[in-house]
Amino acid sequence: MTLEAYLLLALLLFSMGLYAVLARHNLIAILIGVELMLNAANINFLAFNYFLHLDPAMAQIIVLFVIGLAAAEAAIALAIILKLYRKHQSIDVDAMRELRG
């Protein structure tokens, strides 16, 4: 397969994640969308490295770092969601509108 095919796959995955972020009410569902977008980026890293003959280990290490950071991000995000749930009795993103003008 070609590089373009993988890039299109990643783009599709990213767009689906974006849709989830934009359309869903549930904070956890939004978090799911973010994770999808992160994985799309990971696919891009590996694909570029695979086809463009760059530094072999570099992309893998970047992907590992992204996965690690995503784990940290998910832990914090879920903690915040739990806290918000306790405060608002809801995890609907529309309920968090305290910053409106």
């Binding site: 994770e35 590996l46 992907v63 995503a70």
Partner: peptide, 23 residues
């Protein structure tokens, strides 16, 4: 699976372990 196809079994394993198993 895509990672595997891109020639990186290690990241594929990590993906499953951390994402599916953890997150």
């Amino acid at each position: 699976g895509a990672f595997l196809a891109l020639g990186s079994p290690f990241t594929a394993v990590m993906e499953v372990l951390i994402y599916v198993g953890g997150i």
